[in-house]
Design a protein around this nucleic acid. Structure first.
Lengths: 204, 204
DNA sequence: GTCTATAAGTAGATAGAC
DNA sequence: GTCTATCTACTTATAGAC
């Protein structure tokens, strides 16, 4: 509980922690209130009900991810430079919060029609960009010929899945291998790029 | 509700459907009872409480996955044949139930210490096998030189992640592209193998 | 084994004082 | 804005008849 911040900010931070870890149905308003150092009534004063609070958190999370990715799109690059940046930025985001993938997937799974709007609104500009790059690069022969959608999902899987698994790996890892785990996640960036680029580079 | 099966069987089937879709905290005993065509009291008669019922379902799901994978390990093959089989079998399992990845990940996330035992007990024999194969093949130069653990996670990400995303894609897809979606998932098998093998095959 | 009825506890939400 | 106290509804779990 950080004291020099507004009540609303503290609520949002607390709610983010709890919702991200436990999901909508698993989270308790009481726990969020405790984390924020206030009481339940005040949660309702600021956000009316649990659902609205969750929606607010979800939108914030998605916007932050999209924003991080968009910022990395400024400069002109070839496809490999660009994908390298996507991998790096995405991994950095996930390194900071490893529960994000499950959080987003679960929300989408529970109420797709509701959250699809938020997600596509924010992510389509980013993703559409990459897809178009894949298409053009394949045409020019700069990368091997894959279906762009498959290729795109392959990349997301390489980046996101290990982070989605990580929280559980971390908790069940025997003591003597713990020190290696942090390095392991850090090294994923380079490993993903190596693997991805090997699959992409034409034989010629 | 299938009539010619024991009550316990119907409970287990109903519970599997509901738990897999909604998770532990999202599932309601009432809904499971309704799905099974019985009443709540009977659930408790057979499984004492919600937690024990969930544990039973989780173990069954993990065992079934492990079993499917193990069966495919009978015959001798080179690494590419073997990985091809793993991809095919895994995809077939996930095609039948696309909610499986999220279900397992969430359970592990909620209570890692509890479910780690079940998971490692069943999966380590299978996964250890593949890891060892990676190690030896890299040594022999049959595949490129990757860290086996990274490589293994890469493969899992390629296979599992798109299926984990699929339920939501399906529900938000506009009408006119629906017909393509089923084919898309089917075609993942071949796309994964193509991508994976391209990344693995040494340049020489 | 299966049911109805109900107990016991929990969670989200509100009323109203300060 | 923030609190305490409380309401209402829901959920798991049990008691007890058949």
């Amino acid at each position: 509980m950080v004291k020099d911040s507004t009540t609303e900010e503290r609520i949002v931070e607390a709610a983010r922690r709890v919702f991200i870890q436990k999901g909508l149905s698993g989270a308790r308003m009481q726990e969020i209130a405790d984390e924020a150092g206030i009481n339940k009534a005040l949660l309702h004063y600021y956000f009316r009900n649990k659902e609205k609070l969750f929606d607010h958190i979800f939108e914030g999370v998605v916007k932050k991810i999209a924003e991080g990715l968009t910022l990395s799109f400024g400069k002109e690059m070839d496809i490999y430079g660009r994908l390298g940046t996507v991998v790096d930025v995405y991994c950095d985001i996930l390194l900071e919060n490893r529960y994000l993938p499950l959080f987003v997937l679960n929300a989408m799974n529970n109420d797709p029609l509701k959250f699809a709007g938020v997600l596509s609104e924010n992510m389509v500009p980013v993703y559409g960009n990459i897809l178009e790059d894949f298409r053009q690069s394949a045409e020019k022969g700069v990368i091997r010929d894959y279906d762009p959608v498959h290729l795109f999902l392959n990349m997301l899987g390489l980046i996101i899945f290990p982070f989605a698994m990580y929280p559980m790996i971390e908790k069940v890892a025997p003591e003597h291998i713990r020190p290696f785990l942090k390095n392991f996640l850090e090294s994923r960036k380079e490993e993903i790029k190596k693997f991805l680029f090997n699959a992409l580079t034409p034989l010629k």
